[in-house]
Every structure is written in structure tokens, then in C-alpha cells.
């Protein structure tokens, strides 16, 4: 049996991490939850992930910066972005930038987590068929 694909979840709000982890785990994936961009980079250095799901607006290394840094070191890791908007970026701007910088899709909170799981399934299936 192949190992369970591991999903990296990055969000500075614990409740969001818990909710997403529940959804991901229920769908049969492994979930690694971190609360900041720096922790995400550390986790990425330690483990292999099938998909990274990151919030955009966080303190310190924010989601956009994280996406950029991941892309610089690891071109193939699929990234999904989430945002609830923010004082500096509108949802639309953040979403389009995330896409420009390499996120596959941007989800606007609160979103239906089933849609996120469907997207992850598709990415994982795509990776397996290769």
C-alpha cells in the first residue's frame, strides 16, 4: 500500500487549521498543520508533501511570500491558496497574484471544504498518473 499523501496546511488561525485538518483527514490524507510561513518552510524541508494549502494574509512570511519561496526551491509542489481578504489586498487582487506566482487555485473563506478536497483529489490523481 502506497503511503498516504501528506497535505501541508498553513494558517495562523487555529480553528481554520482544525477544520481543514478534519476535512483532509476524513478524505484519507495525512495533515500537517503549521501556523506561519516560517514553520511551513521548516516542515517542507523535513517532509515530502503532495499539496500545500496556505492562507494569504499572515504575520511574518505571508502566504504570497511563502508561495514565491516554495516556487524558488521546489517548482513542482502544487499549492492552493486561501484568503478572507485583508486591509492591503482585496480578495480579487490577492487571488490573481497568488495565481501569477503559482498557486493552482484561490479559495475565498468561508468556502465549502468539499471543493477543496475535490481539488486536492484531482491534483493527487494527476500526480499518480504521471
Amino acid at each position: 500500500m502506497p503511503p498516504r499523501p501528506e497535505i501541508l496546511i498553513v494558517d495562523d488561525v487555529e480553528a481554520v487549521r482544525v477544520s481543514l485538518a478534519a476535512a483532509v483527514t476524513a478524505a484519507g490524507y495525512g495533515a500537517t498543520c503549521v501556523a506561519s510561513g516560517q514553520e511551513a518552510l521548516d516542515a517542507l524541508g523535513a517532509k515530502q508533501f503532495a499539496v500545500a494549502v496556505t492562507d494569504i494574509w499572515m504575520a511574518g512570511i505571508d502566504g504570497l511570500k511563502l508561495i514565491k519561496m516554495i516556487r524558488e526551491s521546489n517548482r513542482s509542489l502544487p499549492i492552493l491558496a486561501m484568503t478572507g481578504g485583508g486591509p492591503r489586498l482585496t480578495i480579487e487582487t490577492a487571488g490573481s497574484l497568488a495565481e501569477v506566482w503559482g498557486a493552482e487555485r484561490v479559495f475565498v473563506k468561508p468556502f465549502d471544504e468539499d471543493q477543496l478536497i475535490q481539488t486536492i483529489d484531482a491534483i493527487v490523481a494527476r500526480g499518480a498518473s504521471h
Binding site: D55, G84, K109
Partner: peptide, 24 residues
């Protein structure tokens, strides 16, 4: 606009687990 963006971000972060966890 600035304030609304900030407020929206905070509230949406709270609403996300409310909506999803209750549904789950």
C-alpha cells in the same frame, strides 16, 4: 475600504470553521 478589508478577513477566518465544522 481598508477597515472593511481587515474586518472581513478576521470575520471570514472565524466563519470558515463555523460553516465547515458544523456541516461536518
Amino acid at each position: 475600504g481598508q477597515l472593511a478589508g481587515g474586518v472581513a478577513h478576521e470575520i471570514n477566518n472565524l466563519l470558515h470553521p463555523i460553516v465547515n465544522l458544523s456541516r461536518r
